[in-house]
Amino acid sequence: MISYMLCLVLFSVGLYCILRKRNVIKIIIGIGIMEYAANLFFVLLGYRTHGRSPIYAIDQEIKSMVDPLTQSVVLTGIVLGLSVTLLLVAIAIRIYERYGTFDITKITKLKG
C-alpha cells in the first residue's frame, strides 16, 4: 500500500509540473515523469513477494514467478512514451524557432 501511494505521489509531482509551469521543456519533463510513474505502477501491481523473474530455468515451480503480462504491456508503453517525447521535442524546437521563447504565455501574445 505504501508503495502504491509513493508511486501516486510521483505521478502527482509530474501533474503539478504540467499544471503549474510555463516553460515548454518543463511541461515535456512533467509528461515524462507521469509516464514513468504509470509504468512503475503497472509493474508494482504484478509483483509477487519472493518471486522470480519470468525466465524459465531447470528446477523451478511455475507458481513462484512474477506477473509477465504487465511487464509485456509496459514494454510497449515505454516505446510509446519515447515516441511521444520525441514528437513533443520537435514541436518545442519549432515553437522556439517561430517565437523565440519557450514561455507558453508569451507565445499567444506574439501571434499575428
Binding site: V79, L82, V89, A90, I93, Y96, E97
Partner: peptide
C-alpha cells in the same frame, strides 16, 4: 525498424536545430 526510425528522428531534429 526501431533503429532506422529513431535515427531518422534524430537527424531531423539535429538539422532543424542547426538551421535555427
Amino acid at each position: 525498424i526501431t533503429a532506422s526510425a529513431l535515427f531518422a528522428i534524430f537527424v531531423a531534429l539535429v538539422l532543424l536545430s542547426k538551421k535555427d
